Amino acid sequence: MSDEDLWRRLSRLTPARIGLGRAGAGLPTREVLSFGLAHAQARDAVHAPLDAVAVVAAIEGLGFSSLTVASQAADRAAYLRRPDHGRRLSEVSEAALKQAAGEPVDLAIVVADGLSARAVHEGAAALLVALKPLVQKSGWSLAPVVIALQARVALGDAVGEFLKARAVAVLIGERPGLSSPDSLGVYLTFAPRHGRSDAERNCISNIRPAGLSYELAAFKLHWLIEQALTRGLTGVNLKDESDAALEAPEMQAEIDSPR
């Protein structure tokens, strides 16, 4: 087998840019154009605004109540320049959350634009479709789903604290890669409050059709929430051992079956 054939076979197994070939001292034109397209898609994902109205409609169409809030970042430019502003709620949003808060709940879910509105548009509702029956089966009480604009992960700490949630799960658009402008991440924090660190969270990443499926991500998130509520912790002291539960035939069938 020639080197060219070997690289061609390997390139079918990964979206990574390998075996690109060359034209003289440079890359072939098709690869230069492909890289330019991927870079443009990543930039678009970062700068494109979230269609909050469409996201709210999709989430409420699943039977969830919702509430929309915003961070202290006034616009996208401020959000990208000042990450700290994206971690704090605006005064108006704080007031809205205080008014919406009722009795303590087990779980608050935040859907945040993050660094890829596209990931939220394409994946947030799909993940909630897979997660909803698992939450209902466990009997957990839920706060209204919060749609957060110009938001960083840590914004969920304040949301969860205001809504008196035992745990908060932040569904957020991840920083786009050159092959993954549609990647959704989930960050789970037990006992959310202002000042929590990233070491106190669990993360599930690369949730998208070409990565971790919505069904498997929902299964992992449900397992982590269950463990967090039982053991009273998240973060470095809570390891994702959900794969062991997947060995049960009935669980594997549930993950594989279309919803």
Results as ranks from 00 to 15, higher is better:
Asp75Lys: 09
Ala101Asp: 14
Ala48Gly: 08
Glu60Lys: 14
Glu60Gly: 04
Pro15Phe: 13
Leu97Phe: 15
Ile18His: 13
Ile109Pro: 03
Gly86Leu: 13
Pro15His: 00
Pro249Gly: 08
Asp75Leu: 15
Glu226Gln: 15
Gly160Met: 12
Glu254Pro: 03
Gly123His: 01
Ala48Lys: 13
Gln41Tyr: 05
Ile59Ala: 09
Val236Met: 02
Ser90Phe: 12
Lys220Asp: 11
Glu4Met: 10
Gly173Ala: 12
Pro15Thr: 07
Arg259Lys: 12
Ala143Gly: 13
Val153Ile: 11
Ile59Thr: 00
Gly235Lys: 09
Pro49Cys: 09
Asn202Ser: 01
Pro133Met: 05
Gln136Cys: 04
Leu67Phe: 10
Ala217Phe: 08
Glu215Asp: 09
Thr189Gly: 02
Arg88Phe: 02
Thr29Ile: 04
Ala77Asp: 12
Ile109Tyr: 06
Arg175Val: 11
Leu155Met: 14
Gly102Thr: 05
Gly185Trp: 04
Glu31Trp: 03
Asp3Phe: 14
Leu6Cys: 09
Ser34Lys: 01
Ser71Asp: 00
Pro209Lys: 14
Gly211Gln: 04
Glu254Ala: 07
Leu89Glu: 02
Ala125Arg: 01
Thr14Glu: 05
Gln252Tyr: 06
Gly36Ile: 03
Leu50His: 13
Pro28Ala: 12
Ile18Gln: 09
Leu6Lys: 08
Arg118Phe: 05
Val146Met: 00
Ser71Cys: 04
Thr189His: 08
Asn237Val: 00
Glu122Arg: 10
Arg193Pro: 02
His194Asn: 05
Gly177Ile: 14
Leu216Trp: 03
Pro83Tyr: 12
Val236Arg: 00
Arg82Gly: 03
Trp223Ile: 01
Leu155Ala: 06
Leu67Trp: 04
Gln99Asn: 05
Glu91Arg: 02
Pro28Met: 10
Val46Arg: 15
Ser65Val: 01
Ala57Gly: 04
Ala52His: 08
Pro144Phe: 14
Leu233Lys: 05
Leu134Gln: 14
Val168Gly: 06
Lys220Thr: 06
Gly61Trp: 11
Ala58Cys: 06
Asp240Glu: 04
Leu128Cys: 11
Ser66Tyr: 09
Ala169Phe: 11
Pro181Leu: 09
Thr68Ser: 15
Ser34Cys: 10
Val53Met: 06
Leu37Asp: 01
Ala151Pro: 04
Ala143Lys: 14
Asp84Lys: 00
Leu6Ala: 13
Val145Pro: 01
Leu233Gly: 01
Gly19Tyr: 04
Arg87Val: 10
Phe35Cys: 03
Glu250Phe: 11
Asp256Ser: 00
Val110Glu: 12
Gln150Ile: 03
Gln136Thr: 13
Phe162Met: 12
Leu97Cys: 12
Thr29Pro: 02
Thr68His: 13
Trp140Ala: 11
